[in-house]
């Protein structure tokens, strides 16, 4: 009943009859075949953890996060943490927008602290840094654009490897992207979690408008801006 997210043949399970085969009719036959079954089952269960998780696991899991926060008397929204952090840094002294009771938002800072810890656990103990199983067409398109790491890495090393930080172009790119995310989410009053999931799940029309905006901006950039941006990486 335990199946792998991935095609089994890719998993080395084909090595099923091991060297213990020669004992098959010997005294240790039963024990060794039991051991083999346990080992195979363990491999299969482990692969559920170490393989990339499918959407139908991740989506409901995120809904559980949403429900968990509602049960905790809070709502799901990550970008408001940036406002809280600005307030903690003293931005409220000169800007009214940051002059609020940020102490009431500490619970959300704990959530993002947990998310960091979760990222650390997934990366180091759950094979989280594995290459993403992309659409093959997208893969070759990225590689043709100079993003060679698409087949082998979780994140494009051209942009997100520490050594890419030696390139001022990449630094500018990261600063620009982050700035727009920060400005846009606060202007729109939420990001993917606050609008696309939490807001839409609560049937909020403003969230639908915001999500339409997410895609207007994202599609425009992907089709008309990213090709130029990525051409920098063509060797």
């Amino acid at each position: 009943m335990f199946i792998s997210w991935k095609d089994k043949s890719a998993h080395g399970l084909s090595s099923y009859p091991l060297e213990s085969d020669k004992n098959y009719f010997g005294s240790g036959a039963l024990l060794s075949s039991l051991t083999q079954i346990v080992r195979t089952r363990t491999d299969e269960i482990m692969s559920l953890i170490t393989d990339p998780w499918p959407w139908y696991v991740a989506g409901p899991a995120i809904a559980i996060v949403l429900a968990g926060l509602l049960l905790g008397g809070k709502t799901f929204g990550m970008s408001s943490n940036m406002r809280t952090l600005c307030a903690i840094c003293g931005a409220g002294n000169n800007t009214e927008f940051f002059n609020f009771e940020w102490r009431k938002q500490i619970w959300n800072l704990i959530v993002i602290g947990g998310a960091m810890l979760g990222g650390l656990i997934a990366q180091n103990f759950m094979n989280g840094g594995e290459a993403v199983p992309l659409n093959p067409e997208i893969l070759s398109q990225l590689q043709a654009s100079g993003v060679e790491s698409a087949a082998t890495h979780y994140m494009p090393t051209e942009i997100f490897a520490s050594k890419s930080m030696e390139d001022p172009y990449v630094i500018m790119l990261l600063i620009l992207g982050g700035f727009l995310v920060g400005f846009g989410t606060r202007y729109a009053g939420g990001c993917t979690s606050g609008h696309a999931i939490s807001g839409l799940a609560n049937l909020q029309l403003p969230s639908l408008i915001a999500v339409i905006g997410f895609f207007i901006g994202g599609l425009f950039t992907t089709y008309f801006v990213l090709p130029t941006i990525l051409s920098h990486f063509i060797a």
């Binding site: 602290g113 982050g178 995310v181």
Partner: peptide, 26 residues
């Protein structure tokens, strides 16, 4: 605010490839 702010976020999302939640996990 939702349309303009959302669009600005969308541009940033496509460039940085990370929204605020995943940023912390990364």
């Amino acid at each position: 605010r939702y349309l303009i702010g959302g669009t600005v976020f969308g541009i940033g999302w496509a460039i940085a490839g990370a929204c605020p939640g995943p940023m912390f996990a990364l």
